[in-house]
Structure formats: structure tokens, C-alpha cells
Simulated assay, not measured.
Amino acid sequence: MNKILIALLSLLAVQLSYGKVYKVKSPEEFKSAAAAVAPGDEIVIANGNYSNWAVTINSNGTADKPIMIRAERKDKVVFSGEVRQSVFHVSGSYIQLKDLKFEDCRLFKGQGKDVVLIQLNASKNCRVTNCFFTKISVNSQFMPIVVISGDGDNNRVDHSRFISNKNNMDVQVRVAKETVPLHSLVDHNTFMDKDSVTWNGNNGGECVQIGQDPILLGNRYAYATVRDNRFIRCNGEPEVISNKASGNKYTNNYFEDCHGELVMRGGHECMVDSNRFKGGTGGIRVNGTGHTISNNNFKNLPIAIRLMYGMAKGKTDTGFYIAASDCVVKNNHINHCETGILLGGAKNADWTGKFDTKRYPSRTVQDIAPHNNELINNAITHTKSPVVQ
């Protein structure tokens, strides 16, 4: 009798450890489920093709019992068609979106509102995982498809695929004057076959963008990490990854045949470590102060590492570009490149008339050389010009 009682109690404990499952097949059913879910519950979206979704969830799971929003089967729940509102807007905590597919979505910019596929807004410990974004297009420049924004922290985009998307930014961590999401993690994703944007200026096609205004907001610390991602034939614009905030880490990413670079466009005190570059138009471009560029591997590139001229220097001057200074470039391996390390890219480049000097009170000529940078133990082989100044 005692053994039977113990078995029944154990079965009851197992059952209680699982939450409820809400199976939905429409935005209305999703909204009802989102209003009812508790920690450990699941919202399962039935297999099928969907359009005209715009749903929000502001619920709270726990670390042990997150709220799961997932496809009934991976890649069998497909969102497509015109998008004029955020498809999924998440602002709670410990919520996971998993196994969803977005294909042939056409995003149309809205007046005064975000139009994205997934937005984690002021969320905490939320996650987008194992999702697939392919053939996504936008009708306006500088539109991302997955956004982390607001005063949230510890949100994650991982193990997802971004394939053949056009004219858009793929993943954006939004750094604003009033709000900065902290400790965002973008990891183990694949970005592939991104054609050059058609916008004037060839701008607005980053795969990953951390921060948006390097001139006025580059000093904001986001502490984001971008690691273990693959970037294959990503040709959207000259910046495959664009850093425009401070205190971020870019580690163990792989770049192959990309027409663009990993770019410290703005910000300070970032770490760029153990990344690999094979083929393409460039490796790492550096503006700003206090960065560490270490243990990276470069092969078959025109220039592996560029330390750039600026219009200003340090953390307090306002400049459209900040000269690279007080950076440590160490233990990098550069092989079969035209130039290994360029100390002084964009020397005397004139930006007169190319940006708004009222909004950005900056000098317009890049005439401040990179300075106080250390080059330590870099191995440069089979390279025409190892170090150029």
C-alpha cells in the first residue's frame, strides 16, 4: 500500500510540474491564451500558414518555469504576407518564442509605430530561439525585423536562421536616450545570402546592429554580447555587424565571403575576440577608444584590421567619427592578405555636406590620426604589407 501511495504521489508531482497547454490558430485565440498563461504554461500555434497577426504578451514566467510560445512543429507554422504592425510584441519576463517561421513577409513602415516581426520591448530574460526568417523585405530604409528595445535586460536571440532577407536590418539592439536594454545576447545564429540594399548610400542592411546613434549616444553602455554566429555571403552594406554603443563583446563569430566588415562605428571599450574571417572585402574596422582586438584570424582579405582617422578624439568630444585611440591589438593571426594592419584609414576624408552639422555639431574632415594604440604579438604571414601607417 505504501508503494502504491508513493507512486501516486510521484505521478501527481510530475503532473503538477507541467503547465497548461493552450493550442491556438488565430490572433484572437492567442490573445485569450496570453491573458491566461501562468509560469510553465505553453501557447502552441497550430501548424498552418498565417498572415495579419499582431499580438502582444506581457506575462511573467520564472527561470524554472518560462512561458513557451512555440510552433506545433518546427517550420510548419509560417507567417507571411503584408506586415503593418509588430507580429509579436513581448514585454514580460521569461517568455520564449520557439520554432516559428517567417517567410515572404513584406514590412510597411507605420506612422509613429514599430513594424517588426518580433519585438522584445522592456522585457527581461526573454528569448527568440530556433526561428527562421527568410525572404523578408521592407519598404523603408533602416527597418529591422527582430528588435530588442526598452529598459529590459538579459534577452536573447539564438539558434535562428536569417536567410536571403532584403533591404532590412536583421537583429537590432535599440539604444535610445531614455532607455538601453542591457546584457542582450545574440548567439549561434546563421546569417546568409544577404544582397546589397537598394537604398541610396548603401546603408541600412546590417545583420546585427547594437546602437543606432554613435555620435550622440555612443557613450551609452549596453553590455551586449554577439558570439558564435555565422555570416556567409552577407553583402547588405559595408557593416555586417555595426557597433554604435559601448561595453559590448563580439566573440567567436565566423565570416565568409562577406562584402562588409565587423565595424566599431562608434562607442568605446568593446572586445572583439576570436572571430574568423575568410575571404570577402574586409575584416575589422575600428573607431572609438579603449577597444581590445585580440585572437582574431584573417585569411584572403584586402585589409584585415583598420584603425581609422576621426574628426574628434576621446569619449567627451563630439565627432561624426572618433579617431581610434587607446586600443590594444594583440595576438591576431593574419594570413594571405594584401594589408595586415592599417594605422590610419580614411585619412583626411571630407564629409562636408554629407551629414547634418546642426544635429551633429562635428568637424567634417577626418584629420585626427589614430593614437596611443598598442600592437602586440600579431602574427602576419604571406601578406604584402604587414603594417601600413
Results as ranks from 00 to 15, higher is better:
Gly283Pro: 00
Gly204Thr: 08
Pro181Val: 01
Gly260Ala: 04
Gly266Lys: 01
Tyr254Pro: 07
Gly282Glu: 10
Thr225Val: 07
Met264Trp: 06
Val173Phe: 01
Pro181Asp: 02
Val186Thr: 05
Asp228Ser: 12
Ala224His: 01
Asp257Ser: 13
Gly266Met: 05
Tyr250Glu: 10
Gln172Lys: 08
His188Phe: 12
Pro214Tyr: 02
Phe191Gln: 09
Tyr221Arg: 12
His188Val: 07
Ser274Gly: 12
His183Leu: 13
Ile232Ser: 04
Met264Asp: 13
Met192Arg: 13
Arg276His: 12
Met271Ile: 15
Arg174His: 08
Asp257Tyr: 06
Glu261Trp: 11
Arg265Ile: 02
His188Ala: 12
Asp193Pro: 04
Ala222Cys: 00
Leu217Gln: 09
Pro181Phe: 04
Tyr250Gln: 00
Met271Val: 15
Asn167Ser: 11
Glu239Gly: 09
Val175Tyr: 02
Asn248Ala: 02
Arg230Phe: 10
Val180Lys: 02
Thr281Ile: 07
Gly280Lys: 01
Arg233Met: 09
Asn243Arg: 05
Leu262Gly: 12
Lys177Trp: 00
Asn189His: 00
Pro238Val: 02
His183Tyr: 14
Leu185Cys: 06
Asn275Arg: 03
Gly201Ser: 03
Asn168Cys: 15
Asp187Leu: 00
Gly266Gln: 05
His259Asn: 14
Thr225Ile: 12
Asn165Gly: 06
Gly211His: 06
Asn168Arg: 12
Leu216Glu: 10
Ser246His: 00
Arg220Asn: 13
Val197Glu: 13
Cys270Pro: 11
Gly204Pro: 11
Lys166Thr: 12
Tyr250Ser: 10
Glu256Val: 13
Arg220Cys: 05
Phe162Ala: 06
Phe231Arg: 10
Arg227Cys: 11
Ile241Pro: 09
Gly236Cys: 03
Asn167Thr: 04
Glu269Trp: 02
Gly282Leu: 06
Asn219Ser: 10
Asp195Gly: 15
Arg227Phe: 01
Lys244Gln: 14
Arg174Gln: 11
Lys166Trp: 09
Asp187Ser: 15
Cys207Phe: 04
Glu237Asp: 15
Gly211Asp: 04
Gly236Trp: 01
Glu261Gln: 15
Met169Leu: 12
Arg276Met: 07
Lys177Leu: 03
Val263Leu: 12
Arg174Pro: 04
Asn200Lys: 15
Val226Asp: 07
Asn252Arg: 15
Ile241Asn: 01
Asn243Lys: 01
Lys177Pro: 03
Glu256Thr: 15
Asp187Ile: 10
